[in-house]
Design a protein around this nucleic acid. Structure first.
Lengths: 333, 333
DNA sequence: AATGCTAGTCTAAACGTTTAGAAGACGCTA
DNA sequence: TAGCGTCTTCTAAACGTTTAGACTAGCATT
């Protein structure tokens, strides 16, 4: 900018004023400055600008697994919503690993992001303390972080799984296997609670061995499903608590030589864009992903534009059970 | 930092030296400074640091559609590879829109990223000129950008589609529908060329109406497939040039009341993690996505660490045809 | 003629680091 | 004692912007 100013024989203040449109600049100087800018090929240094203005117009987004289509969608929506208003988005994925997660958040903070949107991988005490010490606007998405007083947007997981499980019970299923996500996440706990709610409401006894940990990954889903399928009294239905585990479970069903829904019924959390075209057509709980992303982005933008001190808002969205063809009604014995 | 220095009664230079470990600092001062740091809760200002050092340790990554599982995977691998060595990644998605793409790249450059990895949406002249004027390390991935002298890593698209189409011809198919990606992309052109190569090699005539534009999105794939399926002399096989269009095509086949592979064979570009478990089990061309991402990251890191002036490198990776059950052999008439 | 207003431009101080080179303290050698 | 390293610490100048406030010139008003 100094070069431009010298070439145009004006002060840097005038150049700055012209570039930012903060003050009127006379036609004569405007012309000289513009000539100088294109002659030199000047580009404003964004770092110096950020330093002076104290904002980077960048926000950090951390999800627990960017390859999980649910989070991909979240990332895409948030990125779009924020880009539209001039924010760039720095993305990290913790791969469900709490150590990596800490590093990633530090990486983001070290880039001086103006705000943070986080879908936490777990809830270790470290993270909570750490996030509590971060003095920047922040919203937590998908999973909650107990005792952290920030804006959140989550699904009513308990209710959604209650509905799905009740649907299975309504079809006559009594032994319903459950493939669980990590119980250190709020989603893991809430979804399991929904399952138990449904059993309790129908007075179906809760059986410990019917609940298997699927680690929220495909491999875990496979293991958990195999465990369920090889039990002496095999469950007649399985509920899988997220999309990736569902893929694993379906692979296990295939490898076990079983067929869905003839041999076993399956319902699961998270919808797939292809669920109605590839067989079996899965019965799923769909999350309004776009809405979740939009809400999260808006909550953060609100904080960013001054409403920093208001009480935290907690948005809870409802899921939707989509009944397809992967669950069959059981004949009464 | 000034506060810390004052509290510890040393100069800022000493504080800086201690934090960065650039010079030995005596135990006495070390202790005083560390005490001051934790008393004040000091965090180094990354922007000022970047300004002084002239680097943000951030790279920009722009893909044409982040929701496309192929690009999601690319993003995840690149992000992981770069994080590992201390770079943060700023992600943008152009949604196959060349205007949006220009904006996004400007957004990235305006955040002073140290380098760029780009999967271009199209090849408008604008973009080429624009990228040519960007004086920062850059690598182009997946699609090429004719006449732009930068590092690239791409798949041997032509060969891959040649193989797949030849496979269909080998099964006895003669009327093979082709759902094409946008011809303004190099992948769109190369893949179509592979299709024509295969036809030519087998002396099967090329029929214009068998090639339909699918726009590389699901909806486009649906439209294109419908067009093919409703022709008076319906093709016996369809090749779909990317994953999203394949979903659309399968939906069209279902809506047309047809069954794959009984009524129509399908092969496609891009593998799905669930391709071997949901029916029909699709025959696909798998791209070594991880490798592509790693290569791209490494090319950029090489540039970033000084090798700025070497001749551009162009990596071409081979795809792999995975034969499953979505194509049936045609009985000779 | 003195005063005030307006529009355009400039000066200079920030923003919070890094770092070259100066300076001081100390001990060792001649 | 003078000279010379070595080790530690400091001073001060960058890095490239933004912006408050000063200044000037021109013009209208009193």
């Amino acid at each position: 900018m100094l070069d431009v100013a010298r070439t145009a024989q004006v002060s840097v203040a005038t150049v700055s004023a012209l570039i930012n449109g903060t003050t009127r600049v006379s036609p004569a100087l405007t012309q000289r400055i513009e000539a100088a800018i294109s002659a030199i090929g000047y580009e404003r240094n964004a770092i110096a600008r950020s330093l002076k203005l104290g904002a980077t117009n960048t926000i950090g987004l951390m999800v627990s697994d960017i390859r999980n289509p649910f989070f991909t969608d979240i990332v895409a929506t948030i990125q779009y919503a924020l880009n539209r208003v001039g924010y760039a988005v720095m993305v990290c994925s913790s791969d469900e690993n709490t150590e990596l997660q800490d590093m990633q958040i530090k990486l983001l903070l070290d880039r001086a992001v103006d705000g943070l949107i986080i879908a936490p991988a777990g809830e270790d005490v470290m993270l909570k303390d750490f996030l509590a010490s971060v003095r920047r606007p922040m919203v937590i998405v998908d999973r909650t972080c107990e005792g952290l007083d920030v804006d959140t947007v989550t699904l009513d997981n308990r209710k959604a799984v209650l509905d799905a499980t009740s649907y299975l019970i309504g079809l006559g299923h009594r032994r319903i296997g459950y493939i669980a996500g990590p119980l250190i996440t709020s989603t893991g706990r809430d979804r399991l609670a929904g399952y138990r709610d449904a059993l309790a409401a129908a007075e179906v006894p809760y059986v410990d061995e019917l609940v298997q940990d699927g680690d929220s990954r495909e491999a875990g889903g496979y293991r958990a499903a195999m465990q369920l399928l090889t039990q002496r009294d095999r469950p007649s239905a399985i509920f899988s608590a997220n999309n990736l585990m569902t893929i694993g479970a379906m692979r296990a069903i295939r490898d076990a030589g079983l067929s869905c829904p003839d041999d076993i019924s399956v319902a699961c959390f998270d919808d797939f864009p292809w669920a109605d075209v590839f067989r079996p057509h899965l019965t799923t709980i769909a999350q309004p992903v776009q809405a979740i992303g939009e809400y999260a982005a808006n909550l953060l933008l609100d904080r960013l534009s001054g409403k920093a001190d208001e009480a935290p808002r907690r948005l809870v969205i409802q899921g939707r059970l989509i009944v397809r063809e992967s669950c069959r009604a059981l004949a009464r014995p």
